[in-house]
């Protein structure tokens, strides 16, 4: 079973990202769960969301404390939240930042998701962009499934733009490697 934790701010779509990832895994023929941290939801406040992916039906219902992967949608959270708390030793972090390198004590990928989102979506909502980057870094689901899940989540032009943002971020990470 793979467990992923998303860190974001209320209103940035971390929960939607977790759900889109769960849907993508489902399109890949896997079982999945996507859910928010069950806490207080406030716009702008640090929030978390989770995804579980497995080859068999997922019956575990607790929150995630030892994720395999962490996605940080806003580098500003790094000073407020210990984003790598409980992360497995060989875990991976993907951070939205303009910095090229970052040492969080774990294998870390960086991407300027805000730049990509502003460029393609025109707004600094980075959830789909970060999802593309995350898949570029980890390949835990196929980018085609992610795009399909995005198109099914956001209708019409909005969906197309978000799918494009995910793909650009995906390729940006792939080209770095």
């Amino acid at each position: 079973m793979i467990e992923i934790r998303f860190h974001g701010r209320g209103g940035q779509g971390a929960v939607t990202a977790a759900q889109i990832l769960a849907t993508s895994a489902f399109y890949d023929g896997k079982y999945s769960q996507g859910f928010p941290f069950f806490g207080v939801e406030r716009r702008g406040a640090p929030v978390m969301a989770f995804t579980r992916i497995d080859d068999k039906k997922i019956i575990l219902r607790s929150q995630i404390y030892n994720p395999d992967y962490v996605v940080v949608q806003d580098a500003g959270l790094l000073s407020a939240v210990n984003v790598v708390e409980g992360l497995k030793k060989d875990g991976t972090v993907v951070v939205n930042t303009t910095e090229e390198d970052m040492d969080l004590g774990f294998k870390t990928y960086t991407i300027d998701a805000t730049g990509i989102a502003l460029d393609i979506l025109g707004v600094p909502i980075v959830n789909t962009t970060m999802l593309g980057a995350f898949i570029g870094a980890t390949d835990i689901v196929s980018i085609d499934s992610v795009k399909k899940a995005i198109l099914n989540t956001f209708k019409g032009k909005l969906g197309e733009k978000n799918a494009k943002a995910a793909e650009v971020a995906y390729n940006t990470i792939k080209n770095k490697e």
């Binding site: 929960v15 769960q33 996507g34 069950f38 219902r61």
Partner: peptide
């Protein structure tokens, strides 16, 4: 059904 645990979790 358990609030949040089922109501806010997507699954197949």
């Amino acid at each position: 059904i358990d609030g949040f645990i089922l109501t806010h979790t997507v699954e197949p």
